[in-house]
Amino acid sequence: MIDQVCLSDALLEGAKEVFGTMIFMDIEESSEPDQQIEGDALLGSITFMGDLEGCMAICCGDSCAKTIAANMLGMEPDDQISRDDINDAIGEVTNMVMGSVKARLNGTVGNLNVSIPTVVRGQKIENSLGDPENKVSVKVNIEDEYAAEFLLLYREGSG
C-alpha cells in the first residue's frame, strides 16, 4: 500500500502546479495544523477508481474561491462574478489538481479512472469522513491570505 508521505507530497505538488500555472497564486503548506476555514465555504470533490480508490477534495472560503475564479478568468476580485462561475471554477481546479496528482502517482499506483467533479457550498464544512489511516490532509495558505485544505480519502482498490 502506498504511504501517506508519498500521497501528501503528490497532493501538495499537484496543487502548487495548478495554482502556479493557471491561477497565478502561491501556495505554502500551513504551519498551523489546526487552522479553520471561517464562514461560507466551498468544497470541490472528485472520486477515483483503480488500484487505489477514493475521493480528493478541496475546501476553501467563499472569498478565496471568488479570488481563484477571478484569477482564472482574468478578472479583478472586485468584478461581478456569478456564483455559477465561482462553482464552475472550483470544479475545474478540483479536476486539474486530481489530474496532476494522478500523473504523479501513475508510476506507483498505475492508472486511475476519475469522475466529474462536484462542488457544494456551506458553512462549517468539516473534515469528518474517513479513517485517519486512510486519509491525507494538507492545510495550506494561499498568497498568505487565505486558508484552504486539500484532502485525499483512499483505500486499496480492486484494480
Binding site: 486539474m96 494522478k102 501513475n106 476519475v114
Partner: peptide, 27 residues
C-alpha cells in the same frame, strides 16, 4: 485538452484522428 493523460487514451484518440494533445494545467 484534458487532465486525462494516460498513454492508452492519447494513443487511442490520436489513432482515431486527433492531431495533438494538451494537458491541463496548461500555459
Amino acid at each position: 485538452v484534458s487532465t486525462e493523460s494516460s498513454k492508452e487514451l492519447i494513443d487511442g484518440v490520436m489513432a482515431d484522428g486527433a492531431n495533438g494533445f494538451i494537458n491541463k494545467p496548461f500555459t
